Amino acid sequence: MKKAKEHIDETILLKIIENTADVNERSLFKRWIESSDMHAETFEQLKKLNQLTSIDIFNQQKNWESVLKKVKEEKAIPDYIELPVAQRSTITLQLRTFLRYAAMLLILLGVSFLIKIVVFDSQQLTISGKDMKLHEAYTLADGSKVYLNGNSEISFSKKFGIKERKITLKGEAFFEVQRNEKMPFSITTCKTTTEVLGTSFNVYSELSGKVKVSVVTGVVSFYSGEKENGLKLVAGEQGSYNPDLQKIVKDKNVDMNLLAWKTGILYFNETPITDAFNLLQKQYSRVFVFEPKQGSIPLLTTTFDNQTLEAVLDELNLLLNTKNVCKNDTIFFKSFIK
């Protein structure tokens, strides 16, 4: 049976090379080295590089200081132009020495960079709404909760909540943020940033770059570019960002179905059937088409509370005096006259 590839922290490899690893770290190293031939080859290369130079492959600042120190140990370069041949040879030798160490540094940094990409764990976590149950919340390390809509996803550092609370969003999500006045919570989506200390709000973004932030409780800072140019939004308000105008507009949120995707509840009060069908399409991932035989477009007044698609279709047929026909993912409602 093929072994699953293990991952390991780079500092453990350095400890193994320097013979300073403890029992647990050696056990982790043993599992890692045995999980892939590539790991063994990589480690052998690291050992050889470590034997060739004292440069620390995991510390770029230390690497550079080491190179400068070795260059300075050579004879100083005179600061005049006309030099005897011997002096010119000294400069050539110093230049070659510098280039040799610089080349070694670049090689080591390159190896370290590739190892970080290929071998070690990614420092980012990505959570997708497709992998979550309906109405299920994802709880972050700080206790904040995130509800993801459909194909939406969030990405954040594995160290989230230690020094900062930053998230990148694609799509739509509802946030219930734990208050922390010393560590603001921020969401970046498209070209906007939403920043809070602790509150609840919804963020909706489109591929076109449009973003809408709707606040349920607390205060939210919503901006694009400089924070000072942003807007403060309170409960009941929403901010809309238009990428074409590069401007954020604030207004009142009067949409009763703002969180229908999260709660499963849809309210209709004399709503034009075309508008109602647009909301139903998002809720049930189907295309709703109304085909009237005659007369005006009807208005819909009802409430759907977490009902199945079949139950919704039955009620719509009763209210609209229609019968529906399903073709693939499209549902046609055909009017009939008694």
Rank of each mutant, 00 (worst) to 15 (best):
T330S: 12
E82W: 12
L279I: 13
I91R: 00
K227C: 07
E41V: 05
T53C: 04
L105H: 11
K227Y: 10
G110H: 08
S221W: 03
T168L: 12
D37Y: 05
L108E: 13
L258E: 15
T188G: 11
L46A: 13
F290N: 04
I8Y: 03
E65W: 08
I273D: 04
S200G: 06
V219L: 07
D22Q: 02
Y241L: 01
I127Q: 05
E291Q: 09
K116G: 08
V23G: 07
E18Y: 06
L279N: 10
S66P: 00
K159W: 08
L52H: 10
K252L: 08
L259P: 01
L52M: 14
K3T: 07
A235Y: 07
V289D: 10
I248D: 02
M256W: 07
N324W: 11
E153C: 06
A311T: 14
Y267A: 05
L318F: 14
V118L: 08
L148E: 03
D121P: 03
L197M: 10
T139Q: 10
N202M: 04
K159C: 09
E291C: 03
C190F: 08
S54E: 13
K247M: 14
L134W: 10
I297H: 09
I127M: 05
L279F: 08
Y138S: 06
A173I: 12
P243L: 02
N59D: 15
D131P: 08
T194D: 08
L140N: 05
N278K: 15
N151I: 12
D251G: 12
Q51P: 01
V216A: 12
I154P: 06
T139G: 00
